[in-house]
């Protein structure tokens, strides 16, 4: 296959397959969770479960000061690469084109040089996170092969995207094809790995906040 053929395949059928797997996979995952249900809580509530749940969805993004001091690196690096991923994925002009083709929605882009800077910072943060995972005894203890595979799947699209933008190594079409294929690998992995937290975290935080909300505690 030529570079152009690769590109056509990556943007065409491969992207469609990856999108279907991502969407269906997440739906299956959410159904698997929700189908398990939970028992009605008969204890007289001190506060609202719903309010507590919704509050925790938001409040859990901000650690208390003691936790921040104890887990500073994890929190700061985590914030940097999550914000970086958000900016790179959603605020780069060519990406917005892809989203608007899929959904019909469109929004303003950031200048590409700024997104490029975010990409570099995100890659550096992810490298730092990996080094930390290898050196921190708790993280190393908790990590299995999947944790490293997931790291690679997350980092690869950033690197291929950076290479494509700066035309490093291959021809233009080939670089774009590689970038798109690396994104597709990530998309396929999301529903079946810990990357599903991007979706299930809302449920988890809600359930946590609901239980504490009933007890009149803000979590």
């Amino acid at each position: 296959m030529t570079a152009t053929e690769w590109l056509l395949w990556a943007r065409g059928p491969a992207f469609e397959i990856a999108t279907v797997i991502l969407v269906m996979g997440i739906i299956v995952r959410l159904i698997e969770i929700l189908m398990l249900g939970r028992k009605e809580n008969l204890a007289a509530p001190k506060g609202s479960a719903t309010t507590g749940g919704l509050r925790t969805i938001v409040s859990r993004s901000v650690p208390d000061s003691g936790t921040f001091q104890r887990s500073t690196f994890t929190i700061v690096a985590g914030y940097i690469f999550h914000i970086g991923l958000f900016v790179v994925i959603f605020l780069l002009a060519p990406h917005i084109l892809v989203f608007s083709k899929l959904t019909g929605l469109s929004w303003p882009a950031l200048p590409t040089t700024i997104v490029d800077a975010f990409a570099v910072i995100t890659i550096l943060a992810l490298i730092a996170v990996l080094i930390n995972r290898l050196n921190n005894k708790v993280k190393r203890y908790l990590s299995g092969p999947m944790d490293y595979i997931v790291w690679a799947l997350t980092t690869l699209p950033l690197i291929t995207g950076y290479m494509a933008f700066h035309r490093i190594g291959f021809s233009g079409p080939m670089l774009i094809a590689l970038h798109i294929m690396s994104v597709e690998l990530l998309m396929i992995a999301i529903p079946f790995t810990k990357l599903s937290h991007a979706f299930t975290l809302f449920l988890a935080r809600f359930y946590n906040g609901a239980v504490t909300g009933i007890k009149g505690v803000q979590s």
């Binding site: 398990l36 599903s196 299930t200």
Partner: peptide
């Protein structure tokens, strides 16, 4: 469901 949501979300 909460247990499943929790385990699904852990990022180690």
């Amino acid at each position: 469901a909460p247990t499943a949501a929790f385990f699904s979300s852990c990022v180690s």
